[in-house]
Amino acid sequence: MKKSMLLIFGLILTLGLSACSSQSSGEGEKQYPKGNLQIIAPATPGGGWDATARAMQKVFKDNDLITNNINVVNKPGGGGEVGWKYLKNQKPNHLAINSSLVLTNNLLGSSDLTYKDFTPLAILTTEWEAVVVPKDSPIKSAKDLMKKLKVNPKSLKVAVAPSLGNDDHLSFVQAAKTYGVDATKLNFLVYGSGGDTVTALLGKHVDVATMSVSEAKEQYKAGKFRILAVTSNKRIKGLDDVPTWKEQGVDMEFPHWRGVMGPPDMTKEQIAYWDKKLSKMVKSDDWKKIMKNNDWEPYYKNSKETKKFLKEQNKMYKDLIDEAGLAKK
């Protein structure tokens, strides 16, 4: 009998305490930011989102740009969905890293959240996408590749990672579209990660792969891969003999960008605060060094530009997803 009493007592105690603590959370926000800042990486450690968050944390701290304590919080799951859902109900001292998935998750029908549910703060970096074949492949150029696919879209096995509807996949679809290839008929093999795609191509278990440039670069330098085209609008430093899609008659610039956003309804002052801090951050030497080490390129846009950019991107992705045959029904 006593035990059940104890249980009930514990129940009342804990619930009572939790009510108190949630009440105390609605403090005023005269001075922003107050207390600890949280940067949400909606993924496990080891990927680009986590790396971006930790790089921000480091640069802010080391350059004394922000004196508040900054924590990186990993909230992995559902291609960012879990982390962003979490962000939506947080106070403005939380930021989250994002990428085009914040648009495509909704367009693909896997999420109810849209980019409009958040406060855009900045786009920070980009990587570019590359189409890659093994060095000894009979396919010598992007044109060869597309010609072959136009005749028979199923004739080649194309590796992408880690899911359909992401930038690896859609950048390829956009290029294919220009050449009149039916992108819905292509033979895509989906691998778990960029590393798996590299392995599959090295072992020649696939014919072509689409991946980010940084994933292809080392193998390219070692003479194992040929990069047929990249999605930047100018040739990439260090890969000077790799042509862009633009040079090969496909009018596209396809960034694989990463940015930050805040919870909905941030005030003007709060947005201005981040514009100031982030623009300083991207100019720092520490940031530039991290960018170089990671093969990221500067792609900074402030909050206003980001808002506009997201709108344009959303439209572009919508068209591409229709084209790829992935649109939600």
Binding site: T44, P45, G46, G47, D50, A51, R54, A55, S193, G195, D196, V198, T199, L202, K217, E218, Q219, K289, I290, K292, N293, N294
Partner: peptide, 22 residues
């Protein structure tokens, strides 16, 4: 090959890249 074969080596790769070793 620069290919992480497990969760741990994937994180190691990320950390190494950060400090400029690929």
């Amino acid at each position: 090959m620069g290919i992480p074969g497990s969760g741990t080596t994937a994180v190691m790769l990320g950390a190494l890249v950060m400090i400029g070793l690929r």
